[in-house]
């Protein structure tokens, strides 16, 4: 797959950070506004996908990227499980997924205990998974052509 024209490349370079930031915003405000880990993660993955579409793929680089993303994905799920397991430990071995942190004031950014943390981990997981699926499809298509 070849890259697109200079106009598309430049504009996507300008837009991508904004999209990425917006994804982050959705994730960290997951407990206050609609959206959350999943929706924000998909938006963040969209920024990656836009870059690949605009600039074309350089296979060896993409393969490396894929490995890193796989690692991120596994570690994000592990992080999610560890947070849930910490709840089990800190609540005296009774409640899995116990909200063990301070709940804070309703409506503040830092509130709702460990739910924002879980949202961040879910966001990383979804972003990595969707980008991995896209890259796998691109790599597969090029390998079939050969």
């Amino acid at each position: 797959m070849k890259g697109m024209t200079i106009i598309v490349k430049k504009i996507s370079q300008i837009i991508c950070p904004v999209i990425f930031m917006f994804g982050l915003y959705i994730i960290v405000h997951g407990h206050l506004t609609p959206g959350g880990g999943f929706a924000g993660g998909v938006i963040m993955a969209g920024a990656f996908i836009l870059q690949i579409l605009a600039n074309g793929n350089i296979l060896p680089k993409l393969r490396k990227e894929e490995e890193g993303l796989e690692f991120l994905e596994s570690s994000a799920i592990l992080g999610f499980l560890i947070l849930a397991g910490l709840g089990l430990l800190l609540s005296g071995g009774v409640v899995f997924f116990a909200n063990f942190m301070e709940k804070g004031v309703l409506g503040n950014l830092i509130s709702a205990g460990f739910i924002p943390l879980e949202n961040i981990v879910v966001g990383a997981e979804v972003c990595a998974a969707i980008a991995t699926i896209f890259i796998a499809l691109v790599v597969y298509k090029d390998e079939v052509k050969k």
């Binding site: 994905e73 596994s74 570690s75 799920i77 592990l78 499980l81 397991g85």
Partner: peptide, 11 residues
């Protein structure tokens, strides 16, 4: 928890 955690640990 155990099989799920082990699966991603192994990955």
């Amino acid at each position: 928890i155990i099989p799920l955690g082990c699966a991603f640990l192994m990955a």
